[in-house]
Design a binder for these strands. Sequence first.
DNA 1: TTACTATTGAGAATGGATATCAATATCATG
DNA 2: CATGATATTGATATCCATTCTCAATAGTAA
Lengths: 148, 148
Amino acid sequence: MIRNPSEQLEAYLDGQGLKSTRQRDEILRIFLDAGHHVSADELYRLARKSMPGIGYATVYRTLRLFTEAGIAHERHFDDGLTRYEPHAKDTHHDHLICLRCGTIIEFENEQIEKLQSDVARRHRFAVQNHKLELYGLCESCQPKKRKS
Amino acid sequence: MIRNPSEQLEAYLDGQGLKSTRQRDEILRIFLDAGHHVSADELYRLARKSMPGIGYATVYRTLRLFTEAGIAHERHFDDGLTRYEPHAKDTHHDHLICLRCGTIIEFENEQIEKLQSDVARRHRFAVQNHKLELYGLCESCQPKKRKS
DNA sequence: TTACTATTGAGAATGGATATCAATATCATG
DNA sequence: CATGATATTGATATCCATTCTCAATAGTAA
Ligand SMILES: [Mn+2]
Ligand SMILES: [Mn+2]
Ligand SMILES: [Zn+2]
Ligand SMILES: [Zn+2]
């Protein structure tokens, strides 16, 4: 049941009675090889290269569409704009975010996940999704140690 | 070295060459007994009761001031507006957030904190702050189990 | 009091995201 | 292939939270 994103999009459009368009296909292609965690504005700039007439609204709408179709994940980091990443590997992961250069490192930690659900259970809370973000400085942004 | 918030505010204002005003004192009082996690708008409405002429800008500025003074903590949950909570007990804590009624439950978990810093160390990442939020339904917002 | 400034409040401005709407593209149907 | 129904697009207006601007006012040290 593994489908590539294009097929997944077509299937979703079909199922919802929506239409396949040049813009949607092209934006998907660009989104997938843009690398991770792009904002709508970044994607808009990229998209304009191959589609000069593209509008902001279309990019926003298309990213929302991808999210509904399960192709993209919406992320809200602390920089105040929505970012999207491909939902390829559908394994959940969390993030280390560099406050200086913006680099984002992904990680998974089974033990933390386990402890989280323990906390939730203890409070009789039904978790639907969660977010763990560590903000700070990545290795190359840290002040260098000087020899002693 | 334990200071109550009013003293802390006065000390901060003093140290920065800023002035003590009726608005700042009153907003602090209201903020402290408003309970947790108020938005600027909520606080504005509360403040208008005792200070009908108060302006939005003043509330926003004052909350930022409290944050700089270490009296308040700024929180960015996923509902798109900034919330503030008193920094009274200066123990770090994380949040369970009900998506239906908005209730927020606080928790601390030493083991999770420990595992987080392990992850960071492994990536040679210098964490400055972090955020762990579990979104879902609180106990009273969950569909009731029916007897079997 | 005075004089110097920090602060305030009204309203304008900002920035990201969404809504509106006429023109256009897609696509099932004949 | 032509047609008609309708989903989509792009320009732009609008929204909303927050910040900025600036003239009037209030705090404070002298
Ligand atoms: Mn990611
Ligand atoms: Mn809290
Ligand atoms: Zn960095
Ligand atoms: Zn609830």
